[in-house]
Amino acid sequence: MVNVGRQTLKGRFGAKLAEYLELPSDVVLNLPRLVLTGDRQLVVENHRGLKLYSQTEVCLQTTIGLLTVGGEELNIKLITADQVEIDGRIIRVEWNGARGEEACSPNA
């Protein structure tokens, strides 16, 4: 389910609670956590699987929609159940909440 830009009641309550108790929202709200190091490396924690992989684009399923990483010579250095490490020259990082599946198809 894609829900970027629209939060459910549970989500809004969780966000308020996390803010009030000063808890990390990625843990409380089960959000993906992205660490981008310059344009060389991107670490995505809490993903839900690999949707598409090519040397110029990597699409990852997350709890809040599809995450598209565009760039050049992209390599997945490590992929585990909850972490993906992408190396290469990263040009863009984009959430495809509205475009959904078709945004991450090999022909898109």
Partner: peptide, 22 residues
């Protein structure tokens, strides 16, 4: 890609993944 996802779900760790061709 689906194979990788299924492997990850089954507790397999992959690294140095390279796309050689479509």
């Amino acid at each position: 890609e689906e194979l990788l996802n299924r492997g990850i779900a089954g507790g397999v760790v992959f690294w140095d993944i390279e796309k050689k061709a479509p």
